[in-house]
Amino acid sequence: MAISELELPSGVRAHDFVSPPLLAEGLSTQVAEQLRDAIEARGVATLVVSGGRSPVTFFQCLARQPLDWSKVVITLADERWVPEEHVDSNAGLLKRYLLVGAVAKAKFISLYCSATSQEEAAEQADAALAELPAIDVLVLGMGDDGHTASLFPASPNLTEALAADSSRRCLPMMAPSVPHQRLSMSRALLASARSPILSIQGRSKLDTLRAALAGDDLAEMPIRAFLQTPLTIYWCP
């Protein structure tokens, strides 16, 4: 079974790769090309990526791409509410695998801050994201439960986070796994990306995607909010 065999919405493109290293290389080449195009057109490029363990090889490949990184702004689609030195920090992950070498010249906007509450941290992240230029490239992942970024089914703020017309850029979210407290970009901000990409690996993710395509309840599977043109999906076993 390949992702190209699924019945995708009109305008949604898909690329199959035979292994994670080849996917990472192909994805990094495409993302770098789109960032170069944005720099040429507007003088600056904005990249939003997801954290977790799956994107590490992609980050390493992207860091080797020739690009004027001083003209790139990078931030995260979501973050665990833990300090950057914590093993679960997405910002810490980026600083180890992406924001190295020439990429260290990029401007990084962190979602994390030390605050008295998760809500206050989300408000500060929301204010920081007000300085974010328009998103050129967005790379999302997807969980087996159909979540993306930290838009988890049954999270208390999910309705507001999924509102297409929300004025919030970042909201506090709750994950079913530790660490529970998360900060996530809203659907409204994520959906503004010029070039959204979904990168997934494994047969289970293909089954999850198939289930997501078969329904329309966004609260049940938040990834459904993004399964529309001009999305490009990258998949490997």
Rank of each mutant, 00 (worst) to 15 (best):
A128G: 01
D78V: 03
Q124V: 03
G101F: 01
S150E: 09
A188I: 05
H86R: 04
E119W: 09
P172A: 05
G141C: 08
T148F: 10
H180D: 02
C170S: 04
E84F: 01
T75S: 13
A106W: 00
R187H: 15
Q181P: 05
L132T: 07
L93I: 01
D126I: 07
S150L: 05
A106L: 02
G92S: 05
P179R: 07
D165Q: 15
R187W: 10
L99K: 04
D126Q: 08
H147L: 11
A164E: 14
G101L: 04
A125V: 07
Y97W: 10
S166R: 07
R80N: 09
R168P: 01
S114Y: 00
S186F: 12
L162Q: 06
Q118V: 15
A125W: 04
A127T: 13
A149F: 06
T148L: 09
A130V: 08
D145G: 11
E119N: 10
Q124S: 01
K107Y: 00
M185Q: 15
D144R: 14
A91I: 00
L189M: 13
L129T: 07
A164D: 11
A127G: 00
Q124G: 01
V178P: 12
V139N: 02
M174Y: 03
A164G: 03
H180Y: 02
T116Q: 12
F152W: 14
V137N: 03
N90L: 07
Q124D: 02
D165H: 14
A164Q: 10
R169S: 13
A106P: 10
L138S: 06
L129S: 09
R96E: 13
P153A: 10
H147V: 12
I135L: 02
S150W: 07
